[in-house]
Design a protein around this nucleic acid. Structure first.
Lengths: 344, 344
DNA sequence: TAGTTCGCTGCAAACGTTTGCTTAGCCAGA
DNA sequence: TCTGGCTAAGCAAACGTTTGCAGCGAACTA
């Protein structure tokens, strides 16, 4: 039923190899023959079978793209950009969702390995050792993680966290908190590290809260914890948690930014649609997707030199941050039990 | 370098066909041999090459999933659900984005055709004729469109539009508008039809505005048009446009729902995060994704009987709708020039 | 005119599997 | 002892391509 190269060959009176060459090495075939073959191929509706081609060339012209959670608004722009970039280079992309599960991640890479020319591993949750091991089965580019010897695209979130904490302290906040993301996340470690270091350098007090799932729900649930901490300014692992936090605070009648300042990370589309508009650290996700695809598709020689690229982040100040309140006690709802004392 | 079935055969002292059968028809091989083969395969790190298998079986165990815009928040939950369902059935899925372009859609289906066992076409923009034609190249399930003879999963948006208009008229709105989506969209036509019919049946006045791109930006831009129309209640093609409209109205200091009521469609996560919380018609997108995959993977015999499934929608009343204002003139900003007269 | 190069095409092997057919060995029944 | 049936395994063709090699005229070189 499906029309093959052989059908085209028969119909145009040439050998299959000539048909093959018409598509894969046109300059090797007589222009006259070429047009004849092309037109019969066209009229027969012939489409090359990429799997068969892959079998012999070893190149599938497919890519794998593995993310923690497709529905997390951070990823779609990245997926879209990566897919678009890949398709421009005549590649198709498998997209898979791990549900934040490191084991699933690993299985997926292995399952995809034989079927793709490379895998984009976005915000992986698995250990570095596992990544290095998988690297031997299939070319890999990791996004949002730095692993020795593995090509990677990362955002300079440390710089972003620094800017965020500086922003808060500059507004007079002396006690800030970092609402942490999931355990396996490199970004989470970076943020935590940079936030802590910056706070210390500025003589401010920083509390780390978490870890948490990087979801809005987790943010809602963390509101209580944040209030208890006594912090007047919060940096969160991502915008989703920040937005959840905003909701949780709203439910408790805590005013943002009057009583509490909140900063997210990522600058997802949502963050400027909610009220108050979220102050956040913008990460160039689309650019990351494109860059990662480019790295994966680069000839081997170049790959070493461009092994790791860092994209700049930028603090976007909107309406969820403001001057520190005078008396922090006011920022707590009556029901909240204060824990620990606040250093002013 | 990559380990093949032949390596396993050699290492375990059997013929390749025995190794093959160990994986694809275990009951045909002696339990003893089987375990031996399995363990050497394991230790060599053998992974079957699905492309090679596909070449001979004709089944790739891959699916294609084509959407208009990955970054449109309507789609990620659908993609996630479809991918998850597919993987449970040992299928991988290609995800592709058409940028709302009917031509790209067609090219994609054709490019994917040979590489997949079926394609999910979500919210297609191309004509029915084209869909029927593509149907001959590859099994197809269409989501959000009803095409004669093509398996489909649709949401009962007509019912949703009816409920929405009834809700508005019930609140006293006599002049309502439908802010239309893109031209090729079946959902758009359904909504328009149902909204018009319902309004007529209730003796209300309905204005159709559009078509528009189904984006937030388009919604912002349509604010002026909506105000000019004189309508006091608006149903939009999707939540994204509704949210944009809300923004545009906010910029013009028009109060929602006091001066204007807005209803979206889809109930994307965003719609309960913005203020006012959006009244909207919830569509079961995840369920649609799962259902579509199930249909695609069903044995041929059953497919005819379950050719088209319709999923129920539900009006979710939140804060963006309220009683019609007394004097509609008040709902217009000073700068807006009234066009047409309002029948009260 | 003979030899060499060149452009184009055909031939056939190969890629990693699956699968219908055949074979080998064994056991039961007669 | 022979026949028949069964289980387990091997053999080889096939899937749709690509590609190194060889062949063959024609054109160029000497």
């Amino acid at each position: 039923m499906p029309v093959t190269i052989r059908d085209v060959a028969r119909a145009s009176g040439v050998h299959v190899s000539t048909v093959s060459r018409t598509f894969s090495a046109p300059h090797l075939v007589n222009p006259e023959t070429r047009t004849r073959v092309l037109s019969t191929a066209e009229s027969l509706g012939y489409r090359p079978n990429r799997a068969a081609r892959a079998l012999i060339t070893g190149r599938t012209h497919n890519l794998g793209l593995i993310v923690a959670d497709i529905a997390n608004p951070f990823f779609p722009p990245l997926i879209k950009a990566a897919e678009s970039q890949a398709r421009q280079r005549d590649y198709h992309v498998f997209v898979a969702d791990t549900n934040e599960d490191a084991l699933v991640e690993e299985e997926l890479v292995q399952a995809l390995a034989k079927q793709v020319d490379g895998v984009l591993l976005c915000s992986p949750r698995m250990s570095n050792d596992h990544i290095e091991q998988l690297r031997r089965e299939v070319p890999l580019v990791v996004v949002n993680r730095l692993v020795e010897g593995i090509p990677a695209v990362v955002m300079d979130v440390a710089q972003g966290a620094k800017a965020a904490i500086e922003h808060l302290v500059g507004l007079g906040h002396r006690h800030v908190a970092y609402l942490a993301g999931p355990r396996g996340s490199w970004t989470n470690r970076e943020l935590r590290r940079a936030a802590t270091a910056t706070a210390r350098a500025l003589g401010a007090n920083l509390t780390v809260l978490g870890p948490h799932q990087p979801t809005e729900t987790a943010g809602v649930g963390a509101a209580e914890q944040v209030l208890r901490s006594g912090a007047t300014g919060v940096l969160t692992y991502n915008d989703l948690m920040a937005i959840g936090l905003l909701e949780g605070l709203h439910d408790r009648a805590v005013k943002v930014p009057e009583q509490l300042s909140v900063i997210g990370i990522d600058d997802i589309a949502l963050s400027r649609l909610i009220r108050p508009k979220l102050t956040t650290v913008a990460t160039p996700t689309a650019a990351a997707g494109r860059a990662a695809v480019d790295m994966l598709l680069q000839p081997d020689d170049d790959r070493r030199t461009t092994a790791q690229v860092t994209l700049q982040t930028e603090l976007v100040v909107r309406d969820s941050t403001g001057p520190a309140p005078r008396r922090t006690a006011a920022s707590r709802p009556p029901s909240a039990t204060p824990v620990g004392s606040l250093k002013e």
